[in-house]
Design a protein around this nucleic acid. Sequence first.
RNA 1: GGAGAGGUGGCCGAGUGGUUUAAGGCAACAGUCUUGAAAACUGUCCUGGGGCCUGUCCCCAGCGCGAGUUCGAAUCUCGCCCUCUCCGCCA
Length: 425
Amino acid sequence: MLDIKLIRSDPDAVRRRLSRRGYGEAVDQLLSLDEDRRRLIQQVEDLKARRNAASEEIARVKKEKGDASSIISEMKQVSDEIKALDAELKSVDDALDERLSDLPNLPDESVPDGAGEEDNVEIERSGDPPSLSFEPKPHWDIATALDIIDFERGAKLAGSGFILYKRLGARLERALINFMLDMHTTSHGYTEVWPPYLALPSVMYGTGKLPKFKDDMYWVTEDDLYLNPTAEVPITCIHMDEILSPGTLPLRHTGYCASFRREAGAAGKDTRGLIRLHQFDKVELVQLTEPEKSYDALEEMLKQAKNVVEALGFTYRVLNCCAGDIGQAASKMYDVEIWAPGLGKWLEVSSVSNCTDYQARRANIRFRREPTAKPEFVHTLNGSGIALPRTMITLIETYQQPDGSVLIPEVLRPYMGGMEVISSS
RNA sequence: GGAGAGGUGGCCGAGUGGUUUAAGGCAACAGUCUUGAAAACUGUCCUGGGGCCUGUCCCCAGCGCGAGUUCGAAUCUCGCCCUCUCCGCCA
């Protein structure tokens, strides 16, 4: 959510920044609604002040056993006017809210121009894609042969887009989650949480997923709850509607949560293997910071995401995402991509975003610098640390051996009972 | 799921239709006192919105959430949510 006061005080700057994301024309409409709103507020508050004064008068007259009937009948009329104006104000307010909550965050100056992912700018690369001494296979062939992932039976259970990890595949998934959480808690200073998998509409709204992305989520209509599309949602909102005491920030939370996405509009895309699933595992990083520190925190979180892929020995690159590709709530976003030799593709495994005060304003997350200071909105950041399925793809395809077995990266071996290789026997 | 009790500022807690303009206390913050600290005393002390006379200013709203009754609602009515106790069911 953008600050209407900022739009009011500097409409040209907001228009310029929003137009980089294709929303420049919204500003004028917002300004006119804002004007209507303030006009109505003045009118209705005037009447309410009159009513309050009259109420006092009525109380006094009645106490002195006098006759207050003429004031009361006059106030009846005033009350009706108030009711009508209040209704009008509410409809303007709702319209303003609706328009405002639809707008994306303002992009930072350092975000490159562009309309889609093809305009993202590569800013770093760990090395060129390695060449294997044999023809690499795609992960679905290797995993099926090793009987560590059962695609057909996953679909039998929940439809396409759902998979069944088996044997050492299931254990490897578990190992990756534990390895990542341990790294973030012991080396990166995060506090571990394990959030609910379902979230309220208010929480979805707070992180910017509602109302715009309703169709992308699984909705449990009976209870009006949503399956989390990412742990970012519940973890960011842990302190929703709170004012954090001085000294609380920064807050660093990491957590695992299964992520659910309907992938509406992506039907038929990336249907093979693990690239795009309706349910996947992810370890998430979330920070709440003071406003002036959020861009430093963004760099820090990018480094932490990179630490994971480096520890696993993957080839990776970092993209500075363009204005047309950053998330709704983000003012700046980096993608980390890793190389999958079997697919011959870069795969996005982490998005690290600075959402500045966009989510904090929607979710009402504030802090005080001093015990008596005015509350200010925090800045929120989130980053995958990291997404599991594409990590699994890259792991299998990178460490595949000519005999069809897969080497286990050293950092994971303690989590795999000391095993060094996954083989079919 | 059933029955009962409850939800008031950071916390405790008073408040059953009109000086509640939310008492009182605790905590916090500033100051006085003190060699320093504590205690004591004095003051400050919720949030959001609007205004122009930009102020130690004025006004409006908020007592779980939402509707309603009324000239007027923390207080009365209805619906919902949450917490606690007991019962039922259950991993």
